Amino acid sequence: MDLGLQDKIVLVTGGSKGIGRAIAKSFRDEGANVVITARGKEELDETAHQLGAFAIAADLTRPEERADVIRQVVEKFGTIDILVNNVGGSNGGAIVDTDVRLFEIAMDVNLYPAIDLSKQVVSLMKNKGTGSIINISSIYGREAGGKPTYNAAKAALISFTKALANEVIPFGIRVNGIAPGAILHSTGNWQKRMEKNPDKIKQFVESEIPAGRFGTVEEIAHVVVFLASEKASWVVGATLNVDGGQSRSNF
């Protein structure tokens, strides 16, 4: 299916590995011009070389570096058609054992870059009357599971997605989200857990994922490129579970 993404300008945060890398590759496969950003310059540059993408090393927890990323993309390509807010991470443990500062850090990593970058690209997209923003959250933004710091930040991201979507759809800008379940890839936490305790992880998959396996990064990426395309023109403010049936929520 031709998704009509040829020559679109796409910015993917956290694009050097895992889900972000797969998203960037899927957009490149559709003929888009892709910019990836992450903190680790060496890995970022290697990924950009492999994919034929443009790399900008940046720490997106810093407002000045977020602004500089947008500036560099606009200087090189003139605009941004699609923003994928994928950068994120988790920390801490049980709430009573976790310092409040770790909750703040979780917001700094998972929420505030998405808010700030979205606000900046909206001003560009309004001028064109079109654009797409995709936020990568988690099924644990909707239900218990995982680390509370991460859950809180991802829940806020889902709420932000809906609120911004309603504000900007009159200008032709669509904002949506993806809530992945357990995704296995070589640099992810599930891979580390599997290597540490394969029997426990096998039992988790059998009991918690109705599809009977982990998801792949490509399965997330395929949904992202669809949502970003005009084939999903009537999808506004949604955060779609992509989880093999893992989520226990009804929405």
Rank of each mutant, 00 (worst) to 15 (best):
A232D: 09
A211V: 15
T79R: 03
Q246D: 06
V73D: 00
F204D: 10
S118G: 05
R142Y: 13
G89H: 05
K196I: 03
R28C: 15
E75Y: 04
I178Q: 00
E30S: 12
A165W: 00
V224I: 13
W234C: 10
Q246V: 09
N127Q: 11
A114S: 15
A22H: 06
G245P: 07
R193C: 06
P63L: 07
M194C: 08
V109D: 01
I95F: 07
N241T: 12
A67S: 13
L124G: 13
E46F: 01
D45V: 04
T37C: 05
N33T: 14
K202Y: 11
G40F: 10
I19L: 09
N91R: 15
S90A: 11
D59E: 12
A94W: 02
L102A: 08
A155V: 05
T98G: 02
A48L: 11
E64Q: 13
G145N: 08
G14N: 15
K147R: 14
G18C: 11
V121K: 02
V12Q: 08
I183L: 02
E46M: 09
P210S: 04
A58Y: 12
G215Y: 02
A48S: 03
R193E: 08
K8S: 09
V96S: 13
S16F: 15
G15M: 08
I19A: 07
E208Q: 14
E206A: 15
